[in-house]
């Protein structure tokens, strides 16, 4: 078996992603789950880098780690510790949970077997930003505009809720 550097890094990243995802799911402590999520995002970003999608990798870290995860930690900390209420996952909703999990698994498995997997032979690490920018402004202009209107709406809504009166 010939293990290249590429494979080594891939398996390390896969181990990091899956291991921290397991910590995230099985931990009773919400903060530990959040830290597990952090390393999951980091591992996924690393796999994006291996697939020569550098922009996606950095944006993944920027949005999920820099935005969503900080917000999540912020919310948990404001409610935990200060009020002395331990936030742990105690209740088990076995039936609905397993239904959702089986549903998601079926969908993912279907995607997995119907996708036409073709391994990429040679990787060329060309800059992707220029191409992404061009595509956003031409072929995918409508989804881009819709997303920005959605974000603007969320922004105005947040400002409205946060108002004093």
């Amino acid at each position: 078996m010939n293990i290249t550097l590429f494979d080594t890094i891939f398996y390390l990243l896969a181990f990091l992603t899956l291991g921290s995802a397991a910590i995230m799911v099985f931990s009773k402590n919400v903060i530990y789950s959040a830290v597990g999520l952090l390393f999951t995002f980091f591992g996924v970003a690393g796999i994006y880098v291996l697939l020569a999608a550098d922009f996606v990798a950095v944006v993944q870290v920027l949005v999920y780690v820099g935005g969503i995860l900080i917000l999540l930690l912020f919310g948990v900390m404001l409610s935990n510790k200060i009020t002395n209420i331990e936030i742990t996952t105690e209740t088990l909703h076995f039936l609905p949970a397993s239904l959702v999990v089986i549903g998601i698994f079926v969908v993912l498995y279907r995607v997995f077997i119907t996708t036409d997997w073709n391994p990429v032979g040679s990787y060329n690490f060309d800059p992707t930003t220029h191409e992404i920018g061009t595509l956003l402004m031409t072929d995918y202009l409508i989804p881009f505009e819709i997303a920005s209107i959605l974000l603007l709406g969320a922004l105005i809504g947040a400002a409205y809720i946060a108002r004093k009166d």
Binding site: L38, D54, F55, V58, V59, V61, L62, V65, G66, G67, L69, I70, L73, P127, T129
Partner: peptide, 17 residues
């Protein structure tokens, strides 16, 4: 890196965490 600037902005979010 050809996205070096964005990388710096992104990686500094680990400092916050």
């Amino acid at each position: 890196l050809n996205i070096g600037l964005l990388y710096i902005i992104a990686i500094s979010s680990f400092v916050v965490i």
